[in-house]
Design a protein around this nucleic acid. Structure first.
Lengths: 181, 181
DNA sequence: CCGCTCATGTAACTGGTTACATGATTTA
DNA sequence: TAAATCATGTAACCAGTTACATGAGCGG
């Protein structure tokens, strides 16, 4: 509990908290089906991680009765809840790690390496892909709202605002590059 | 050139392109001094990476004459420029990896695990930290604009819009939680 | 009974991290 | 001349990845 856990470990703790009692497989699905691809939810990550958290006393599990494949149901211990809360509470990490990471933004810095003609094409494709993604996260948000899941909704809502900001930024960039900035 | 490089490898290629001829140390500084902490710019990452890129023919280097410590100046080869361009050009990665990653957003999903009292405190601290960060990236943008570096400016400008979107989202969340969403 | 989903896991790898270590050059 | 910065690197580690492998349960 005291030593530093990875961000994924805390998120998994959160996922279990949200769905307990649940199997490792169910935890994986959350990542696999998430519109973000930051974590893959690979078996090689999730199964060892859950065992680790259990060994540390943050999770406990029981074998589902009458299940021949030995599938385990996980839930948080008191220590697990405490760890999750401690992660959520201040002090938050530094502002620089609070800031979101945007691979498109990173690329923009090197647009000078592209012939001027190609730049518009990239921005156009990015805008097109993000517009489609906007629909995905919007649908996500709507679904959570209907389900009355306030916090999942707020998360998805954050994604909506974020993608919108990216699109606004792309419009600005296209404008500036068109006028030969 | 054909095999998949990591995102960091491409970014390093871009950094060298932008500053060539430059030392590995100068490349590191760009990451160390960046307001984002996504890559640390650690020696253990940068030095082997540069050697790798050179071995693959994307970079070439020469020892700075009259330099007793054997410090090397790197620059892109034709293949390096081509690789950089190929990375920037369509087809871009999937929309889900184009979407930015936000650790604050992720945390929000599990706010239900926090006593209602603590939630406002977290949002307040986050808003405070991001407001400070907004100044940092704004200063960055202004600096690049003054220097006439259009693309660095646009990158920083993207960061500004992104942090603003995060702040707007936080306001929305505080509003909704205050009114007992 | 076939195929899909549920379910659990391992093995090899990789792309980073921190920490350590050394020495040259510049500046106060 | 001492301290800070420039400059290069290695070693141990770690948290994830992909790919592989196995098998139970269930719906058509």
């Amino acid at each position: 509990m005291t030593r530093g856990h990875s961000e994924l470990e805390y998120v998994v703790l959160g996922v279990v908290w949200d769905a307990q009692p649940c199997t490792a497989y169910a935890v994986r699905k959350v990542f696999v089906e998430s519109p973000s691809s930051h974590w893959s939810g690979s078996a090689g990550a999730i199964y060892p991680l859950l065992r680790r958290l259990q060994r540390q006393g943050l999770l406990r599990s029981r074998v589902r009765r009458g299940d021949q494949r030995g599938s385990r149901l996980f839930q948080l211990t008191d220590a697990g809840r405490a760890a999750l809360r401690a992660w959520l509470q201040p002090p938050l990490p530094s502002a620089s790690s609070l800031m979101s990471v945007d691979m498109l933004r990173v690329r923009m810095r090197f647009f000078g390496a592209l012939p001027a003609r190609g730049r518009q094409a990239v921005l156009a494709e990015a805008a097109q892909k993000l517009t489609a993604q906007l629909e995905v996260v919007r649908a996500d948000a709507a679904r959570f709202k209907r389900a009355g899941d306030t916090f999942a909704y707020l998360m998805a809502r954050g994604a909506v605002l974020s993608v919108r900001a990216q699109l606004a930024w792309l419009r600005e960039a296209r404008e500036q590059l068109r006028s030969g900035g």
